[in-house]
Design a protein around this nucleic acid. Structure first.
Lengths: 330, 330
DNA sequence: CTGAAAGCGCTTACAG
DNA sequence: CTGAAAGCGCTTACAG
């Protein structure tokens, strides 16, 4: 910028005023500056600008797994709206590991991101500790954490699972196996609560034998499903608490020589873009990924702009049961 | 840092030396500094550091589509190895749009990323122009661009498609429809070349009627497949040049009331994590996503470190044909 | 409308 | 081993 100022024979203040449109500049100087910028190939140094302004125009996004379609869909729309507002996004993955999560958040905080959008991993306290050292505006997605006062956009998980299980019950199923996410997470707990509530409402006794923990991971879900499938009185239906796990469930079903939906019905949380064209057409709970991303991005933008000084609020969205062909009457 | 220096009653130079371990500090001062850091809750400002050091410890990754499993898999491993080396990654998506690509690259260059890993979108000249203004170390993945002198890690696309088409020919197929990526891209061209070479080698005459352009997009591929499927002499097999497009192909097949593989065989570029458990089990060309990400990350790290001053080189990896159940003898 | 100057928080020769 | 000081490239009161 000094070079530009020098060759344009103006002060740096004027160059800055011109470049940022922050103050009027006479047509003459404007021409000289424009010319100087062209010939030098000047580009404003955003780092220096950040240092002075105290803002980096970037927000950190931390998700569990970039390989999970749910997160990528949400990420995609978040990026979209954030970019439109001139923000870059720095993406970090935690692999559902609180330690990694802490590292990633540190990395983001160090780089002075203006805001944080987090899909929390691990138990609530982990995130609480990670966030304690900073006062960067934060919005949570997918999960809520006790002890963290931040905006959040989540699903009404309990209601959604309740509906799905209800559908299964309506089909005559009584022994419905449930592959749960980690009970350490809000998501894991609230989905499981939906399962239990649905059974209870239908007067079907709960049985711990029918609940296994897959921790939102394919591998664990495979083992969990296996345990359910080898039971003498095999469940007639299986519900998986997320998309990764249902792959494991399907794999277990195949390895047991069973077929879905002929031998066993399957339903799951989270939709797949290809669900309608591959067999079995999975009956799932679709999350409003677009709305989730949109809302989260909007919230963080508001917080960053300081337009929103109100106490944090939670936006609760509804899931939608997509009935396809993976469930049969019992 | 001034605060820390003040309360520890030392100079900022000493604090800096301690924090970065860049010079020995006496045990006494070390204790005082440590204490001051604790009580103040000091964190080094990475922005100021970047400004002074001319390095941001972050690399920009620009891909076409975060929703595409191929890119997310590669992204996942790139992030992994980069994080391990203390680098953050800033992710941008181009939607295969050269204009957006230019914006994203600008955004990254502005923020002074130390390196760039790019899966080029659009035609070669677009990227060439976007990169012209900068001399940031760059490595290309997935696609090579004419006129750009950068390290690259790509697939031997022609060979891979050749193999897949050969397999189809071996099954007795003669009318093999081909859903191509954009011919403006190296990837689109080299994969198509593989198709043509395979037919030629088998003495099967080429027919433009059997080639349609899906531009790597599901929607376009759907239309392209439709055009192929309504032909009086319908192809007995369809090959899709990437993963997104095969979804469109399957959708077209379904909408035409056809079944795969009973009525028509299907094969595609790119594997899916769930390919073995959903029907039809797609026969595909699997890319070595892990190796691609690993190599790309390694290359950019070397370039950034300046350890590699050699002329740019291209790493060419081999695809692998995964024969499953979506292709039948004709 | 324009310019000289201070300062954002760090690092790093250069003296001591 | 430690400190005073300059400078990374910008923005922004403050004068003129």
């Amino acid at each position: 910028m000094l070079d530009v100022a020098a060759t344009a024979r103006v002060s740096v203040a004027t160059v800055s005023a011109f470049v940022n449109g922050t103050a009027p500049v006479s047509t003459e100087l404007r021409g000289r500056i424009e010319h100087a910028i062209q010939s030098i190939g000047y580009k404003r140094n955003a780092i220096a600008r950040s240092l002075k302004m105290g803002t980096t125009k970037t927000v950190g996004l931390v998700i569990a797994d970039i390989t999970n379609p749910f997160f990528t869909d949400v990420t995609s729309v978040i990026q979209d709206v954030l970019h439109r507002s001139g923000y870059a996004v720095m993406l970090c993955c935690t692999d559902e590991d609180p330690v990694l999560q802490d590292e990633q958040i540190s990395l983001l905080v160090d780089r002075m991101v203006d805001g944080l959008i987090i899909a929390p991993a691990g138990d609530d306290h982990a995130l609480e500790r990670s966030l304690a050292k900073t006062d960067i505006p934060t919005v949570l997605i997918d999960r809520i954490c006790n002890g963290i006062d931040a905006d959040a956009v989540v699903l009404d998980n309990q209601r959604a699972v309740h509906d799905a299980i209800n559908y299964l019950i309506g089909l005559g199923h009584r022994r419905i196996g449930y592959i749960s996410g980690s009970p350490d997470t809000w998501t894991g707990r609230s989905r499981l609560a939906g399962y239990k509530a649905a059974l209870e409402a239908a007067g079907i006794p709960l049985s711990d034998e029918l609940i296994r923990f897959g921790n939102f991971r394919e591998r664990d879900a495979y083992n969990a499903a296996m345990q359910l499938l080898v039971q003498p009185e095999r469940p007639s239906a299986l519900f998986s608490a997320n998309n990764l796990m249902v792959i494991g469930v399907m794999r277990a079903i195949r390895d047991m020589g069973l077929r879905c939906p002929d031998d066993i019905s399957v339903s799951s949380f989270d939709d797949f873009p290809w669900a309608d064209v591959f067999q079995p057409n999975l009956t799932v709970i679709a999350q409003p990924v677009h709305a989730i991303g949109e809302q989260a991005a909007q919230l963080i933008l508001e917080r960053i702009a300081g337009r929103n000084e109100q106490p944090s609020r939670q936006i609760v969205l509804a899931g939608r049961l997509m009935i396809r062909a993976s469930c049969r009457p019992c």
